[in-house]
Simulated assay, not measured.
Amino acid sequence: MKLKSLLNVALSAAVAASFMIAGSATAAPIKITGAGASFPAPIYSEWFKDFAKKTNGEIKVDYQSIGSGGGIKNFIGHTVDFGASDAAMKQSEIDEVPEGVQLLPMTAGAIVIAYNLPGIDGLKLPRDVYPEIFLGKITKWNDAKIVAANPGVKLPDTPITVVVRSDKSGTTFGFTGHLSAISSDFKSAVGQGTMVQWSAGNMVKGKKNDGVSSAIRQTPGAIGYTEYGFAKLNKLPTACLENKAGKFVCPGPEGGAAGLANAVLPENMIVFIDDPEGDTSYPIVTFTWMMFYKKNKSAELAEALRNMVEYCLDEGQKIADKAGYIPLPESVVEKVKAASKNIQ
């Protein structure tokens, strides 16, 4: 009896230990790693913190803001579970990923032209003026073309310092795409790209959107392009730009939403809006994408990624406006939800 009792105790202990091991394995949080665009980094940070709370810590997302070029590079190199880019991916890059790629636009934003002119708010820049500033053809703030668009505003005789990105950037891709669409001179001299050869002379470079924003803030007479949320965070004044309809529209949620309103997503989920139609449209708006493997390392990871996407499309869109981003139109949300099923 004594031997039998000892055996029963040993067996019970083994079963209990087995249960504890299994229980701890299932309770261990799933860690998702991502990297890429700095443009959406502020809202991604908010989303992922709240998502971890909503899942009681069962799914944690670690996102590194390294720029769109770095995000694509890391995604192709399989050092992350997902990448992020404002420039989407080229087909040649997609072809380098044997697991297949699913691109999903997750949020959208406005690219703004911010400047450092103390005491001057609501500066108006016509569409034949701001491309010339970034081409280096307009070099003083009291240039006749800027003065004509801003009657009653005392513009200083200050040299313009142009601030651009030093790294491969989806924000640069969107900005140069717009300038190329409205200026044939810009298109031929500079063109569109994630990194371009700027022709302006008096220039400062900054890394990522926060680097550009900081450089503008620290440089009297500076002008540069950055994401709307970064300009808000740094309390930088932003220019009201003349749109395709000839109306001056200041950056903000209404103008941004109007700029996205007519966007139609094709099957590959990639669409660029270089010069939107509409009287109320802000002229420089862009989607920003997350990049996923269609075939992932495990079914558990794939499910966690789909849950993350669902959160971003539902709860996440509710804070987009407050964070300085443009909530996705409902028609876009539905298409993205359907496409997310390809993450397996």
Results as ranks from 00 to 15, higher is better:
196 V>G: 01
196 V>K: 01
197 Q>P: 05
197 Q>T: 15
197 Q>I: 05
198 W>E: 01
198 W>L: 15
199 S>Q: 05
199 S>C: 02
202 N>L: 15
202 N>R: 12
204 V>K: 13
204 V>F: 08
205 K>Y: 15
207 K>I: 04
208 K>A: 12
210 D>G: 11
211 G>V: 02
213 S>L: 09
214 S>I: 15
216 I>P: 01
216 I>G: 00
216 I>W: 06
217 R>E: 14
218 Q>F: 09
218 Q>R: 15
218 Q>D: 14
219 T>G: 01
220 P>W: 08
221 G>W: 06
224 G>H: 06
226 T>Y: 11
226 T>R: 02
227 E>V: 13
229 G>W: 04
229 G>M: 06
229 G>H: 11
229 G>L: 04
232 K>Y: 12
232 K>S: 14
233 L>S: 02
235 K>S: 06
235 K>T: 13
237 P>N: 10
237 P>R: 08
239 A>P: 08
241 L>P: 00
243 N>D: 09
243 N>V: 00
244 K>S: 02
247 K>P: 01
248 F>L: 05
249 V>G: 07
249 V>Q: 03
249 V>I: 13
252 G>P: 15
257 A>R: 04
257 A>G: 06
257 A>K: 05
257 A>S: 14
258 A>Q: 14
261 A>E: 04
261 A>H: 07
262 N>Q: 15
263 A>W: 13
264 V>R: 04
265 L>S: 13
266 P>K: 08
267 E>Y: 04
268 N>I: 13
272 F>C: 04
273 I>G: 00
273 I>P: 00
273 I>V: 11
276 P>D: 11
276 P>A: 08
279 D>A: 09
281 S>N: 10
283 P>C: 14
283 P>M: 02
284 I>A: 08
285 V>T: 11
286 T>L: 14
286 T>R: 13
286 T>H: 10
288 T>C: 03
289 W>H: 07
289 W>K: 05
290 M>Q: 14
290 M>R: 02
292 F>Y: 09
292 F>C: 06
292 F>R: 04
294 K>H: 08
